[in-house]
Simulated assay, not measured.
Amino acid sequence: MPNNAVMNGSSVENFCAAVEAVLDDGFREMAAEAERQGVFPREVLARLGAAGVFTDKWAGGYRFQLAKLVGLYTALGAECSGGVGVGVSLHDSALAILHRFASSDHLRSLCADATAGTAVLCIGASEQTGGSDLQAVRTTAVRDGSGYVLTGAKAFVSLSSVADFALVLAQCVENGSDHRPGNLGLFALPLTSASVGEPYDKLGANSLDTAPIEFDTWLPAEALLGRPGIGLAAITWGLTHERLSIAAQVSGACDRVLGLTVARMMRREQFGKPLFGHQALRLRVADLHAKVAMLRLALQGMAASEQIDVRTAAGLKVTAARLGQEVVGECLHIFGGAGYLTAETPLARWWQDMQLSRIGSGTDEVLWEVVAAGMKPDFNEYDALFGEPEPRKE
């Protein structure tokens, strides 16, 4: 582990020990109750904040402490409470934005409160008509005296039912009707100034309540992160954090599900021998085990290098999400009827929760476009191997 891992707060080992202390039986009871009630438990963020987890994680400044990010979200993923894990990562991704782009005393104070777990953050980016096309947002922030009038609606805002502030992406209009597409800003909107709709019924992640919000309110200029025009960069920074968090959660969840499946295969007998004794099943799980090991090693290698970029995060998230679907789906299949019955095992709920990983923070297709934009051709090698031969001289 790099030497500066200790300089940026506690050591990674001590940080992970603090995380594990929070993820105790009390946490599991809160997560189970949140699943039943369909409301994210704010107390989870309060406990993480009180234990110094967020303070420690961000002790090195706005740059991601990748080893601590991986440690926190792998541990949350292993709890297999997808809604709670994603809720924590959404709050933390908003924190990533504030730690880098907070440009006023108001925003720095909000960042401190959210780091302590006493304020809850969410992100309002996607709109009903825009989806993943963030530059097409219709929400506007029209300059009005010493602030902005923020007007619009966001369709899918997870944590909005329990959060104190939403970081809202809007088109900035500085001079009346002077509306330049792409001039995006990101604003800290107190949700007391917004109307939060009824939470949606979802396929899974029941403990992550998601609802639409609407607003038409005046905000002081100090609510703007940075300046007009950098909203897309700010939201991309937060999404990069979120995508890495999801990849780590998938890794932790897959490890746990595979361990339970192997135990099931060794205990459950069919046709006179344990399921593990059937080569077809044993080798299928071995294939999954190897793939999950590669994901875990990729995360560890990334953490050790302390290097990350938008394209690497995008590719890692898509690869992990697809693998997570495969792993949980195959393990559910191996559990047979008991896997399908929600009263028998949690496999069906875990499978439902895993579907969110391929949609949240960017769909596969959007993220593959991010990766494709960075691919570089090797024209020299191509021409050397496949170039047109020079015409023969008569």
Rank of each mutant, 00 (worst) to 15 (best):
L167M: 07
E330V: 14
L72P: 02
T118F: 05
H333D: 14
R108T: 14
C254Y: 06
A67Y: 00
D178T: 10
Q135H: 13
T139M: 03
Q65R: 13
A321W: 04
Q128D: 12
G61P: 02
D24R: 01
E174F: 07
A34L: 01
N14F: 00
V22C: 15
L159C: 06
A5G: 09
S81Q: 14
R180S: 14
N206A: 12
L225W: 01
N206Q: 15
A94P: 07
V22N: 06
A21Y: 08
L121M: 03
F215Y: 15
E344G: 04
V328Q: 10
N175Y: 11
R63V: 12
A75G: 07
E390P: 00
V196L: 09
D201A: 15
G49I: 01
F379N: 11
M375D: 10
G229C: 05
S357D: 13
R256V: 08
R100H: 13
V22P: 08
W58G: 01
T210M: 15
G124I: 03
I359Q: 10
Q300P: 07
G182C: 08
L275T: 07
A34E: 07
A78M: 04
L107R: 09
R42C: 10
H91G: 06
W350K: 03
A31S: 09
L260R: 09
M354V: 09
F386S: 11
I308E: 05
F276P: 03
L341T: 08
Q325I: 06
R349K: 09
L283I: 08
G83S: 05
A51H: 03
R47W: 01
P181F: 05
F64V: 08
E127V: 05
G85C: 05
G26F: 06
D164G: 04
L107G: 07
H278K: 07
G9S: 02
S195C: 11
G182H: 01
K291V: 10
F215S: 03
Q135T: 14
D255L: 12
C254R: 04
L288Q: 00
P228C: 07
T217F: 02
A17C: 02
N14K: 10
T342V: 05
E394D: 13
A153F: 09
I235G: 02
K57F: 13
F276T: 08
Q128M: 12
A153H: 13
A94T: 00
A343S: 13
G145I: 03
A119D: 01
K291D: 15
M375L: 15
R63W: 11
A119S: 15
G38R: 03
L189I: 02
I308G: 00
C80E: 01
I308R: 02
A384I: 04
H278T: 04
V292P: 06
G71T: 03
T192N: 10
N175F: 12
S195E: 15
H91N: 15
P181K: 05
C254I: 05
K154L: 01
L169K: 07
K393H: 11
G337E: 15
D209G: 11
C111Q: 13
G176F: 09
V366F: 10
R108S: 13
T319C: 04
L48T: 08
E344M: 03
S104P: 04
G83F: 02
A34W: 05
C111D: 07
E269Y: 12
G337H: 10
L385N: 10
F40Q: 07
E330C: 12
V19S: 01
F101I: 00
V84G: 03
L239C: 12
R256T: 13
